[in-house]
């Protein structure tokens, strides 16, 4: 991979002047995406695209090298009886598991993503957060999923949050930075929009909804607001930022509706793993079952798909 000059953090805009978001209007728009009927070849194409965008994730206190190796095996061998399957985008683990995952995945093109910055709460000192980030990168992480300091954000200390993201971005070096807003703790869509703008200006390569540890995690309305923020940021600066809804997306049909939303909001340029990811642990198998059903015409049982 060639090293391109990364855009540095721009100044923090006045977040109070960010356009407001109307929740009911957002919900209505999202409902429209969900009335789209995706059939036949467009469904197969969508399902394969979804697979290619998955960050296969295990983020448990009980994670062990064995568990992580099994997950990597699954990432490599999604369902070998189905031909022409893409591989998932990445395997996402805690920093202590990065080395294990890196070794298990080799150079098959599947990235290793590591959470960092005192995931999931983010309640630690900046020094430790930066150290953790650098460690994960040194261990071989291609991508860092950091969490923002929600407390600071909610009390209006936007500069603190901004500076922290910028510092982590710097610590990432060549690794891509995904910034988790933990939208389930932000309360309103207006906050989601503000946090998105803040993170992008601070240098985020991706913005991500959730840790998966807080409910609600990813929802279509929240993701929609973030996509709109990405769109406006792109049109203002010319820089593309990626989007990662994470947590709560386990049904293939829902994932396809996320793709519909993505396509109709940001267009084709974002319809790749480079710019869109699903953070999920059980989505892959449901997508595989749907693909198998499309191939055979027969409804499937979970017993025939490996759970790692």
């Amino acid at each position: 991979m060639s090293v391109i000059a990364l855009p540095i953090a721009s100044a923090l805009p006045d977040l109070k002047r960010i356009t407001p978001v109307d929740e009911v209007g957002v919900n209505e728009r999202v409902a429209r995406f969900q009335t789209r009927s995706i059939k036949k070849e467009s469904k197969i194409e969508a399902l394969k695209t979804v697979l290619s965008m998955i960050d296969l994730t295990t983020l448990e206190g009980q994670d062990t090298p064995g568990k992580v190796r099994q997950l990597c095996q699954k990432a490599i061998h999604l369902h070998d009886s189905l031909p022409d399957l893409p591989h998932v985008a990445a395997v996402c683990v805690y920093p202590t598991m990065v080395g294990i995952a890196r070794a298990a995945l080799g150079d098959r093109g599947i990235n290793v993503a590591s959470v960092a910055t005192a995931f999931p709460s983010g309640m630690s000192s900046r020094k430790i957060k930066l150290e953790e980030t650098r460690t994960a990168v040194e261990e071989g992480a291609d991508e860092i999923d950091m969490v923002i300091s929600r407390g600071a954000f909610l009390q209006g200390d936007y500069h603190f949050v901004f500076d922290e993201i910028a510092a982590v971005k710097e610590a990432c070096g060549d690794a891509h930075l995904k910034v988790i807003l933990e939208t389930g703790e932000l309360g309103t869509l207006d906050h989601v929009r503000r946090a998105s703008v803040l993170a992008m200006h601070a240098g985020a390569d991706f913005i991500k909804t959730s840790t998966g540890k807080i409910q609600p995690a990813a929802t279509m309305p929240v993701t929609f607001v973030m996509l709109k923020a990405i769109k406006d940021f792109y049109q203002e600066t010319g820089r593309m930022v990626g989007m990662k809804p994470a947590g709560g997306i386990s049904a293939a049909k829902l994932a396809v509706h996320y793709l519909v939303m993505l396509r109709e909001t940001l267009g084709n340029a974002w319809m790749t793993p480079e710019w869109f990811r699903f953070g999920a642990s059980s989505l892959a198998n449901d997508v595989l079952m749907q693909l198998q059903k499309q191939a055979t015409g027969v409804y499937q049982s979970a017993d025939y798909f490996s759970k790692d």
Binding site: S37, K39, K43, N268, M271
Partner: peptide, 14 residues
């Protein structure tokens, strides 16, 4: 910085 909506993934007739 125009977005493109017309190529790529399309919805099959439903």
């Amino acid at each position: 910085n125009k977005l493109a909506f017309n190529d790529g993934w399309q919805y099959a007739p439903a």
